[in-house]
Each structure stands twice: as C-alpha cells, then as structure tokens.
Amino acid sequence: MPAKEGSLVLTLTETASTVVKTIVAQTPELDDGGLRINTDQPGGTEFAVSVAPAPEAGDAVVEAEGAKVFLGQFAALALDDKVLDAQVGEDGTVRFAIGDQA
C-alpha cells in the first residue's frame, strides 16, 4: 500500500530504527525481514508486534536507516501521522512508544 501523495506516514526515530534492526537480526534466517505491526480493527489502539520475514499482502512498508516496518492495513491507517520511538531498559527489555509527528 503506497503512501498517499501529500500524506504523512509513520516515521521512526533513530533509536527505533536501531532497535528494529537489532530485533530482526536476532533471527538470522530473515535476511529481508522486518517488524510487523498490526491491529484487528479500524481505529484500533492496541497493536500486535512481531518479527516477519516479509510484508503480508496489503501491508505498507516503512524503511528508515536500514530498518523495515510492515504495517497491516488498519495499523497503517492508525499510525499514518505518527512517530515510532523505542526505549531499551537496563535489563534489555524494549518498549515502543507512539507519538504525534511535529
């Protein structure tokens, strides 16, 4: 699903890009894989996140600094004008945050 002309699409912070690449690299058989974000309903605010070998049919693909994020149809609509950030805890846990684009 290509971005609409003149629309904003999900962007990734530098930290989020690094974290996505690190997570995907932990599954070496996924040469061209990415992080897939999806929600089951239009306007959904609860997102499932998983590592995927490739986008599914109808997914939007966002690439930033070598990181790939695949957005399911409803997730792409919900995150169209958002920024994905990530925080890594001292114990290595990852927490993603979604904010508005400036």
Rank of each mutant, 00 (worst) to 15 (best):
M1A: 13
M1N: 10
P2M: 08
P2W: 01
K4C: 02
G6Q: 10
G6D: 12
G6H: 01
G6A: 02
L8T: 13
L8S: 12
V9R: 12
L10Y: 08
L10I: 05
T11S: 08
L12H: 09
L12D: 11
T13G: 11
T13L: 03
T13Q: 06
A16P: 12
T18P: 00
T18S: 15
T18H: 13
K21Y: 04
T22Q: 14
I23G: 01
I23Q: 09
A25D: 14
Q26F: 01
Q26E: 14
Q26Y: 02
T27R: 04
T27Q: 10
E29S: 11
E29M: 10
E29Q: 13
L30G: 00
L30R: 12
G33K: 03
G33Q: 07
G34C: 06
L35M: 11
R36H: 14
I37C: 04
N38K: 08
T39V: 12
T39K: 11
D40S: 15
Q41K: 15
Q41V: 15
Q41Y: 11
P42M: 03
P42E: 14
G43P: 04
G44E: 04
T45I: 13
E46H: 11
E46R: 11
F47Q: 03
A48L: 02
V49H: 03
V49C: 05
S50E: 14
A52T: 11
A52Y: 02
P53T: 07
A54H: 13
P55R: 07
E56P: 01
D59K: 00
D59H: 09
A60I: 01
A60L: 14
V61C: 05
V62L: 06
V62S: 00
A64Q: 12
A64P: 00
A64M: 03
A64N: 13
E65S: 14
E65I: 04
E65G: 13
G66S: 13
A67V: 04
K68Q: 14
K68M: 04
V69C: 09
G72I: 13
G72N: 00
G72Y: 06
G72V: 12
A75Q: 03
A75L: 13
A76I: 07
A76T: 06
L77D: 10
L77P: 00
L77G: 14
A78P: 01
A78R: 01
A78W: 00
L79N: 00
L79I: 06
D80Y: 05
D81G: 00
D81Y: 09
D81Q: 14
K82V: 06
L84C: 06
D85I: 11
D85P: 04
A86V: 10
Q87A: 15
Q87I: 02
V88H: 02
V88P: 06
V88K: 05
V88D: 03
G89P: 02
G89S: 13
E90S: 07
E90A: 13
D91G: 00
G92F: 09
V94N: 02
V94F: 05
V94G: 03
V94L: 04
A97Q: 10
A97G: 14
I98F: 10
I98R: 00
I98C: 02
I98P: 04
G99Y: 00
D100M: 09
D100N: 15
Q101E: 07
A102M: 07
